[in-house]
Amino acid sequence: MPVGYSLYIDSHSTLHQKIDPRTKLAGLVTSFVLALEFNDPKFLGAILGALLLIGLWAHLPFRRLMPFLIAAGWFMIVGIAIWPLYVRQGSVIFTILHRPVTTDGLLFGLAMGLRVAIMSVGAGIWMMTTAPQKLTLGLLKMGLPYRAGLAMSTTIRFIPLINAEHAMIAEAQRARALDLNTGNPFARASKSVSVIGPLFLRALALSQSLAVAMEARGMGAREQRTSIVEIELVRNDWIIMSFALLLIALGLVMRLKGIGVLVKGYL
């Protein structure tokens, strides 16, 4: 994950400037639904490819998307390691502990990893192309109470901040000879207490000081709030949302017809 104070990367791209945050949210939901509609790695790979192209079209540096892909890569490895133990369909390649490992089992594991990749890359592109204030505004326009909308966008804004705090705390403990990279999983988990403890307390202190600072500036004095940034759904947004809905419906039909489904009976 990138370490910084906001995931948002300012750019003059169409996705950044011309598309309403609600439309982008609809696009994100569509990518999630499509990821769940198929379980064939070819289809899921194509969706991931399309998402990466959208990211590049939005002028996002590929290196900023890489951490999401690397994280998803770990899920692919876990998927490939676990799913063949459950999926028996397909030709047997080899056996482990008298359990057959099949081609479809391996491909299904890969597909599950691709699902996580789609979701994390989709969420990453959404956060990198939507300014925090527009994000809040979009949620408010969708009927979310102001406090809830603010809490949500603040949470998103805090992710990289907490990430930076985590890096700093881990560094401070390493300076006291704590080696977080060695030992068995149990030993590592117990070592991480010295990082998670201060991180938790820092997060609480940060949120408390933010709350006080906001109240000091009159937060909550009025229920109705004006905004310095205005957003509006225009024709292009309606076209994109209609297209997204169409994609979801098409995916559903394909799913019912068994297209893009490698293993039936599994989501």
Binding site: E165, M168, Q173, A175, R176, S194, G197, P198, A205
Partner: peptide, 12 residues
Amino acid sequence: GYVYQNPDHQIF
């Protein structure tokens, strides 16, 4: 030894 600017980054 390294003492950080903010003691809360290491106290747990």
